[in-house]
Amino acid sequence: MIPELMIALSVGAALFGVGLYGALSQTNLVMIIMGVELILAAALLNLVAFWRYLHPDVTAAKMFVLIVMAVMAVEMAVGFGIAIARFRSRGSVEMEEARELRG
């Protein structure tokens, strides 16, 4: 395996781990979304690394990167939109306080 690729993938895995831990352990909606963004950053890093070191002539990878970036942005936009709606209704975006719906 190409060493640079391994380094990039390891960093990606670390980002993923941090992001996933953050997303699962945080209770604030905004912080969770930040964790999600880290996971997506890891995906971006992976994509670029695979493209650069394994498949340099595959243009689809670049397109994929753009799409993932768009996903990041749009997901964040909708996430914050919902956070605002929640804030207006409840005054807090803590997941811990969201216990009304249960059966």
Partner: peptide
């Protein structure tokens, strides 16, 4: 300005394309 900010997030990303 958060209404703008949310729109901006979407718009800015579309410019990447």
């Amino acid at each position: 300005y958060y209404g703008y900010a949310l729109l901006f997030l979407a718009f800015d990303m579309e410019m990447a394309f």
